[in-house]
Design a protein around this nucleic acid. Structure first.
Lengths: 218, 218
DNA sequence: ACTGCGTCTGTGACGATGTCACGGTCGGTT
DNA sequence: AACCGACCGTGACATCGTCACAGACGCAGT
């Protein structure tokens, strides 16, 4: 068993592409909280995530931040791909949210794989274009959506299957690119309506249906 | 002389790539105001702009809009590229701002050129990654920048070498993804300070230095 | 248990931006 | 001249961001 088992699309590569990619990649591990990449650095490797999640966020000079997207197991990092191809430096920061395992494919091997394997190329650029689509959606939300709706969406998303969101108000504010006070007020209101229950450093979704209804209204 | 003369990067392609690309592309013309592509459509062709500019903007359900970027002569459209590669439909709208001439390369020929010519590939993906970089910048501005600063930047940008911006307040609002009233108030203030002179459907920049200073302050 | 101490949360005041509802002005057409 | 649609100005109010500050909570050390 090799690391390509984690990436169904790569596992289907015809030989000799697959073994080429397998041999060139090194598996690396990082602890939760590690900075995977940061603004100003040029990327050295193409990254494929095997385990864990990486949060990619933009930082403003004023200290505010907004989450651009998350990279989850089985995905590659769009910003790394774009910078690698365009020979640019990172603009955003990537932070491991959990302990992670990833495959690092050196730039030279990446270039070679891109040029020699149409399937690998499709895998890389399909991921890139899908992330680009997400970014357009994000722009629309930041520019035009009300904060209560965005918060409701994000809470449901972060809770996943559970009903628990183990984050502080400040962290939620950073998710949406807004200020802590704004989140505090919205959550107070959500709680008043019986939609969530708050506690220090976490909250519980009580009435998910109501949150979904808020999102779909107007 | 062929249309590849308009694209220095393509002109340098080694044979037989260049003649392949040249033969497959058709030159098309559209009048100013024409909708080049719109939400929900799948792209049919890779587009290279020879003359004119195309404005690509996102529309919200509420009728607001924001300009994502412009495609100018010698460039390709990032959204078209991304959708073509990822087999997705357009999310935004592209409108010809001037009469345009463009080269349309059918999807099949595009795929073939991508796979057979490393140089063409580099040209395509460098453009894509550079546009992606711009989008991150846009997100930061929308999320964190004050509207007066964004307006000043955009005015200087739209004026170019001249000092004239022939747009209505509504059009400027659509550039920045805000409301007309907001622009009206900002321009009233700019005029009060003697930085611009307004007239119906256009404005003139009187003190570009002051606008630049506003941008660089804080 | 008591005491600090840093982090997290709540809140009022106010500025900046978005929304709504008007009314006035300008240019071109009939 | 009269009309009409597009463009612009403005007040009132809602929402969101910023600032300042206070209280509450959890943890460490005693």
């Amino acid at each position: 068993m090799t690391w390509t088992d984690h990436f169904p699309e790569l596992k289907k590569l015809p030989e000799p592409s697959q073994s080429m990619v397998e041999r060139a990649g090194r598996v690396v591990s990082l602890p939760a909280g590690a900075v995977v990449f940061g603004p100003g650095q040029p990327p050295q490797n193409y990254l494929l995530l095997i385990n864990g999640t990486v949060r990619v966020h933009q930082l403003s000079e004023a200290g505010r931040e907004i989450v651009l997207y998350r990279v989850t197991a089985g995905e590659s990092c769009a910003m790394t791909t774009a910078c690698l191809i365009g020979d640019e430096v990172y603009q955003a920061e990537g932070v491991a949210e959990t302990p992670i395992e990833a495959v690092a494919l050196p730039k030279a091997a990446f270039d070679e794989a891109i040029s020699k394997s149409p399937e690998f190329r499709r895998f890389v650029f399909a991921a890139l274009s899908s992330r680009m689509t997400n970014l357009f959606k994000l722009i629309e939300e930041v520019a035009f959506s009300r904060i209560d709706i965005r918060l409701a969406q994000r809470l449901l998303d972060l809770a996943g299957d559970s009903d628990r969101v183990p984050m502080t108000h400040q962290q939620l504010a950073s998710e949406l690119g807004t200020a802590r006070e704004v989140i505090s007020r919205q959550l107070t209101e959500f709680q008043r309506r019986g939609w969530v229950a708050t506690s220090r450093g976490a909250l519980t979704i009580v009435d998910a249906a109501a949150l979904r209804q808020l999102i779909n209204a107007r």
